[in-house]
Design a protein around this nucleic acid. Structure first.
Lengths: 236, 236
DNA sequence: ATCTGTCAGTGACGTAAGTTACTTAGCCCA
DNA sequence: TGGGCTAAGTAACTTACGTCACTGACAGAT
């Protein structure tokens, strides 16, 4: 964590804190920033390793994250240690919990963790407010906001109306043929505990849908898995 | 359902479709509309009875509802007939599912039903887009948007991590001392079935927390109910 | 080669919640 | 005052999930 220093205002110039390569990178990932004065703005850049907690539920939002590389996992934690993933934020995407925290000036209602080594630029709260007056940026933010809201409703639906085996099967299908992860991580994404994941995965293996290994799940029969999922992923 | 008619443009004037009293009423409930040209705009006004379906999941959003009187219940339905209330929209409030539908141009991801006799003005999609350029309106919409998002997270949390008795107890406490509703309606709000509500309410009655009657629940010991709820309503 | 920590497997058990299939109660209106 | 409707009670049963308390398996460090 590094803060831009120096005092350019002393010589009557605006502070130039965002190096040109970073501005370029940002504009490539977030085209809606194109016409904004990135170069004359202090954006803090963080480079964190997998597992780093980036923000906590209950805390005020410290800034709006622009992900350059990696992925942030946003989830909700229960008092008994279980947790449930709400969504992930990758490069070029935005975090609606942060946006909501900034727009309503309320504490964040979820926690964010780096799911991998992650590099991100932090847009300070006042800057976020100011740049929302810029129509392209605003439209981008609120477009994604709206999309994520839909995802969240689908999640509510899944949690309220679907069995865990369906949800797990659907989840695996979204992750490609070979998945490298632990049972605990899967449990944390689905809001359950490790043992249940183990049990369900073993069932899937007995059914011939997957092959299991240490931190490894290979889908050997996607069709079977699909039918196990009951196609639980339909949005509306 | 009544559509404003006439063709004022034929005589070179903008269409004047919103009568002054309605404009007044709207501005009283939605102050962020103050500086917008309500009078020169065609706003359809609907007056519907309790139970009327106002929009369906999967359909495109027909307009942005401004509630004048009554209440809209927004919920998500499962294929087995169960349904789960996401939130309600009263006078002066806004519906984020509609807003999201308009901003992302995607089908709505929940259904809306009048929870009582409801009167509302419908802002057409293109008007909503246009008026979002007006800062006070925009800030109002997105402020509420952000707030509701928080509610939604709390809902996810409740559904994923809390028992139904806790949720029911909490729900009752929010509804005042005497509640007039059916067990089925409660089930539809919490995402379960009627029998379970009956069972739980009877337990609450045995515990001396409530007194039951036909379409009537009276809370006789709020403290007891509170402890049954496990204070399951904490947000973050 | 052994140690140590993480990851995975397992079985017994408890219980919240949904399902089925009724019966009973209360209310409206003819 | 007796149908006919909807709301509510109920009991027996099933099942998905979670909890507990382990044991075993593997990988990198020493």
């Amino acid at each position: 964590m590094r803060r831009a220093s120096g005092n350019a205002r002393a010589v009557g110039l605006r502070q130039v804190a965002t190096p040109a390569p970073l501005a370029l990178e940002l504009r490539a990932l977030y085209p809606s920033l194109t016409d904004l004065p990135l170069e004359s703005t202090a954006l803090e850049v963080l480079d964190v390793s997998a597992g780093t907690r980036l923000f906590d539920a209950g805390a005020p939002c410290a800034g709006f994250p622009l992900v350059l590389e990696g992925e942030i996992q946003v989830s909700r934690a229960a008092s008994d240690g279980r947790q449930l993933e709400l969504y992930r934020v990758g490069p070029g995407e935005i975090c609606i919990v942060s946006a909501a925290g900034l727009m309503s000036n309320r504490p964040l209602n979820a926690q964010g963790t780096a799911a991998a080594r992650t590099r991100l630029a932090m847009m300070p709260p006042n800057l976020f407010a100011r740049w929302n007056d810029h129509k392209p940026f605003r439209q981008f933010v609120f477009g994604v906001f709206a999309d994520r809201l839909g995802d969240l409703m689908t999640l509510v639906d899944a949690v309220a109306f679907h069995r865990l085996d369906e949800r797990l099967a659907g989840f695996l299908l979204e992750r490609g043929r070979v998945i490298h992860t632990t049972h605990q991580a899967l449990a944390d994404e689905l809001g359950t505990v490790r043992e249940i994941i183990t049990r369900l995965l073993n069932r899937f293996e007995s059914a011939g849908a997957v092959k299991l290994g240490r931190e490894r799940i290979e889908i050997v029969n996607a069709t079977a898995l699909q039918s196990l999922s009951g196609s639980a992923l339909k949005s509306p």
